[in-house]
């Protein structure tokens, strides 16, 4: 391996398509990329179970989106309802320029201060020009992208409040330190946590559309395979990535297609009824679970290139949405039992 190759490979993520096992986590992530309105994923598990690796690997397969050129918030040109003031003015004047940009994974470090999360006064500009200017923070970068919070359970409560606020409104409202500003901030929230280090606030838990638990790989053969693959990647990332370029490109294409057909996937009434039945059987309050379950099934159908949702789609995705909403007792983990789900699906007539 040459020095140059090593330098090029540095900072690259392990390819998504070569991550062994963890099918549930991969599926949950893909469905959210296909339909961001599902509401994000919470990944729970011990250290070293490829949580972060998988999330970072998403970057390679994320689709393109059309944004307004030069906008620090990456306003989506097709959605005039949720734009920053500058882009809206441009849109009205007809000077908005669409450019294609790849979706990204934006990381929120745990020690991020409030001003860096929500954005703040551009101090340098203020001092040199005597005028106010807003400088966007993490929530600005996250618009239209994936916001990844490692160890989300350790995040300070007041930062969590900011995330919740933006997630609920789809916009970030800044009213502090002399700045009054608002910009779109619609993102896919992906959090990972190790439950031993503290639990998650119930309100934040409910905001996640999906939650999955990843366990360690207990199959010796698979473990050996993982170690070997990783070593191969580390020794020469560039050629390793090259070796699976076709697969990566195929997956990327599959996601892009799914996003295109998503709006036209047909969802028969009896499927909607099924979703409601499942929710009610599990005793879930509120409509968030219903909506997330429905959207997940639709996204799953789209990902498989289908144009009509079936019972099978609901069956394959429902557990992703339900698990974290069934935790009644704080002292126990999730007590998700899929027999109710199977029963509902079995009873359901097409």
């Amino acid at each position: 391996m040459t020095e140059k190759a090593a330098a090029e490979g540095r900072g690259r993520s392990f390819p998504f398509v070569r991550i062994a096992g963890q099918d549930e986590m991969k599926l949950a992530l893909l469905l959210n990329v296909v339909d961001p309105s599902i509401g994000g994923v919470l990944i729970t598990g011990q250290k070293g179970t490829a949580k972060s690796t998988t999330v970072r690997a998403l970057e390679e397969i994320l689709p393109e989106r059309t944004v307004s050129k030069g906008c620090q918030f990456g306003c989506d040109v097709s959605n005039p309802e949720n734009m920053c003031e500058i882009c809206r003015a441009k849109l009205e004047a007809g000077t908005i320029e669409p450019v294609s940009k790849s979706m990204r994974v934006i990381e929120l470090p745990l020690n991020a201060t409030e001003d860096r999360v929500s954005g703040t006064l551009d101090v340098e500009y203020m001092l040199t020009h005597g005028e106010k200017k807003f400088e966007g923070g993490v929530l600005a970068q996250a618009n239209g992208n994936i916001l990844y919070v490692d160890e989300v359970n350790l995040l300070d409560d007041h930062v969590v409040d900011l995330l919740l606020d933006s997630a609920a409104m789809g916009r970030n409202y800044v009213e502090r330190e002399g700045v009054s500003f608002t910009h779109p901030s619609r993102f896919i929230l992906i959090g990972t946590m190790n439950p031993e280090e503290g639990s998650l606030r119930p309100q934040l838990l409910d905001r996640f559309g999906m939650a999955i638990e990843v366990g360690g790989m207990m199959d010796r053969k698979v473990r050996a395979q993982i170690v070997k693959e990783r070593l191969r990647f580390d020794s020469d990332p560039v050629s390793y990535l090259e070796s699976c370029r076709e697969e990566t490109e195929a997956l990327r294409q599959r996601i892009a297609n799914a996003r295109t057909i998503l709006g036209s996937v047909e969802c028969p009434d009896h499927i909607v009824d099924l979703v409601v039945d499942i929710s009610i059987e599990y005793g879930i309050e509120g409509h968030r679970a219903d909506l997330a379950m429905m959207r997940a099934a639709i996204a799953y159908a789209a990902l498989n290139g289908k144009t009509k949702v079936t019972k099978q789609d609901v069956e394959d995705t429902a557990s992703l949405v339900l698990r974290h909403r069934l935790q009644k007792n704080i002292f126990e983990g999730s007590n998700f039992d899929n027999s109710t789900l199977i029963q509902c699906i079995f009873n359901h007539l097409e």
């Binding site: 409030e114 929500s118 007041h158 409040d161 900011l162 919740l164 606020d165 409104m169 970030n172 409202y173 800044v174 009213e175 502090r176 330190e177 002399g178 700045v179 009054s180 608002t182």
Partner: peptide, 15 residues
């Protein structure tokens, strides 16, 4: 008008 969670008092009342 929205009142964001982290609004400070100088923004709410004026400064």
């Amino acid at each position: 008008v929205h009142l964001p969670i982290n609004a400070d008092d100088s923004q709410i009342f004026g400064a």
